[in-house]
Simulated scan of single mutants.
Amino acid sequence: MTESIRTRLATALCTLALAAGGVVIAAPAAHAGGPDCANYLAGGNPARSTIGEELACGLGATGLPVSKDLCTTVMSKVAQVGPARTDTACKEASG
């Protein structure tokens, strides 16, 4: 019975590692909207964007089902961007 549990655990961990690797490989292609979002927030000057804004834009550009919610939460709560700019920026991030 111990072998069965170990085998299942190893299979689950390998599956998790493969899934995480797939997200990492796919992530750079999905970030196409992140710079547009950060550029919008910085008013055309990318040097003016903050780390919180860039993080929110990156999360919004991941393409995950909850990416817009993550972008909105980080943008409004962490970076403290107003609601109208948050909505537009997260739309830019999602492409």
Rank of each mutant, 00 (worst) to 15 (best):
M1K: 04
T2E: 15
T2V: 08
T2H: 07
E3I: 10
E3C: 02
I5G: 01
I5L: 07
R6S: 03
R6L: 09
R6V: 15
T7R: 14
R8G: 08
R8V: 10
R8Y: 12
L9A: 14
A10P: 09
T11R: 10
T11N: 07
L13V: 06
C14W: 02
L16N: 03
L16M: 05
L18G: 02
G21N: 01
G21C: 12
G22I: 08
G22N: 02
V23N: 04
V23D: 07
A26W: 05
A27Y: 03
P28N: 10
A30P: 05
A30I: 12
H31N: 11
A32D: 04
A32I: 12
G33P: 02
G34K: 13
D36S: 10
D36L: 15
C37P: 04
A38F: 02
A38E: 08
A38L: 13
A38K: 04
A38P: 06
A38W: 02
Y40R: 15
A42I: 14
G43N: 10
G44A: 08
G44F: 01
G44Q: 07
G44T: 13
N45D: 09
N45T: 14
P46G: 09
P46S: 10
A47E: 11
A47Y: 11
A47D: 15
R48Y: 12
S49P: 09
S49R: 14
S49D: 15
T50Y: 08
I51R: 10
E53G: 15
E53N: 03
E53R: 04
E54P: 00
L55S: 07
A56Y: 07
L59R: 01
G60R: 00
T62C: 03
T62K: 04
G63L: 05
G63C: 06
G63T: 03
G63F: 02
L64Q: 09
L64M: 15
L64H: 15
P65D: 09
V66H: 07
S67T: 09
S67V: 12
K68Q: 09
D69Y: 14
D69F: 11
L70Q: 13
C71T: 11
T72K: 02
T73H: 04
V74Y: 00
V74A: 06
M75K: 01
K77W: 06
K77F: 08
K77L: 12
V78L: 13
Q80W: 05
Q80E: 15
V81Q: 02
G82W: 06
G82C: 07
P83H: 00
R85I: 12
D87N: 06
T88G: 00
T88K: 04
T88R: 05
T88N: 03
T88H: 02
C90F: 03
K91T: 14
K91E: 15
K91L: 05
A93M: 05
A93G: 11
A93W: 00
S94G: 13
S94L: 10
